[in-house]
Design a binder for these strands. Structure first.
Lengths: 219, 219
DNA sequence: ATGTATGGTGTAAAGTTCACACACTGACAG
DNA sequence: CTGTCAGTGTGTGAACTTTACACCATACAT
């Protein structure tokens, strides 16, 4: 089967930056490419858009196919289309990003992916294509969104916390996402002002220190 | 000549929202399509990306071809790719925007454009494809950029002013771009704080009112 | 002289951001 | 039982930003 056009057409892919927090650090989901170009190289998941699917649907499909991750709300980052970004042919990619909890997530590499793993954002391997650029843009956008407005992206930050959490735990999550330390008192004022925290009147115990109050959040 | 691929490929276009101010109101540059689909319908300029050109280069080229407008710094807005947005075949478009002065600009419709005209943003005709959506997104982004940070976009606002301008003229420009009235005193404080205004020690004359001081701006 | 149309000016209140230091308490060790 | 450790919890002031708001000045026309 082949497809013929009167004029040349580029291929169009979707690539997806999936961020999560694991072991207290910001991670990104990468796949190891099974095929050339950049065979065996790590890359952000993605693949070709089908002719009858919307961009974001295609991105979600590729993500699930390659990594087993599904049901995440993707936000468009932009299009990347340098003529030589793919050695095979002209490929224009539309990048998406999302922030997801990953604790109970099972990664299942498939399709074009030999492997799918979480990588520490501070220890990235060499990446295929222009994925390093895309990922850097996504990282910057993530830091921007998380603490500025109360958006869906910011909501998803709470998924890295247990149902009952301490304010110190919450601060650690937001610091990880933002990539910089936050002032304790100012953080507590911010979270109280911007989110509906419920004081559970319970305390942690077991630490070699003063117990911390536990909270949950209502949206 | 034809081009054959093993898998189907979408066409990729760039579409460009060019804003300007004319006669004190915000205008957008539209072209009248010469060919189907949407023949004779108005649309934002744009066209197919060539295989060896970057997205923004292609956008600039299409803009010049269809309207005669060149040399404008385009900013990417995002990709639009609903499967049915073009009745011919799958077409994914990458949208760009810019704000340009238009007084000495000569519009020259060519290529796929029967005509190129400035339209008042408040009196838009029916637009081809999903261009109404794209244009609405661009309008929102424009208002955002102009008064918030001192960006390239904001700089270009001064191009709608003569070399020597009054603060009232400047306020009118920024109000038009932002789409809402601004407080006179607060605007004057803002512009003085954010831009390097030079007091020319000259005054307007001839109005049936008190003369206004003239300024120029240094970047 | 008067009317009219636009130019030009300052201040206070509210809100936001940022920096910053010390006492509290439970667990554990001795 | 006592001391130390380690993380918890709390408030204020300064700087800055944002917003609201009203009146006199000046040139021209009549």
């Amino acid at each position: 089967m082949s497809y013929t056009y009167e004029y040349p057409h580029p291929a169009v892919t979707a690539d997806i930056c999936i961020f999560s927090i694991r072991e207290g650090t910001l991670k990104v989901l990468l796949i190891q490419r099974l095929i050339d170009p950049f065979k065996d190289c790590w890359a952000i998941p993605g693949g070709f858009i089908k002719m009858d699917e919307d961009l974001v649907i295609g991105a979600a499909r590729e993500l699930e196919e390659e990594t087993g991750v599904s049901g995440v709300p993707l936000e468009q980052l932009g299009a990347y289309g340098a003529p030589d970004r793919d050695p095979r042919e002209r490929v224009i990619t539309v990048a998406f990003m999302a922030l997801v909890p990953s604790d109970q997530m099972v990664l299942a590499a498939a399709t074009d992916a030999a492997d799918a793993q979480w990588f520490d954002m501070d220890e990235l391997p060499a990446l295929a294509f222009d994925h390093a650029t895309i990922l850097a843009d996504a990282r910057a956008r993530l830091a921007d969104k998380v603490t500025n407005r109360v958006t869906e992206t910011a909501k998803s930050a709470f998924q890295f916390l247990p149902q009952k959490f301490t304010l110190a735990q919450a601060q650690a999550v937001f610091e990880t996402l933002k990539g910089e330390p936050l002032d304790k008192r100012n953080f507590r004022k911010w979270i109280a002002a911007n989110w509906d925290l419920v004081d559970l009147k319970e305390k942690t115990s077991g630490g070699r220190h003063r117990p911390a109050a536990l909270y949950s959040v209502d949206f």
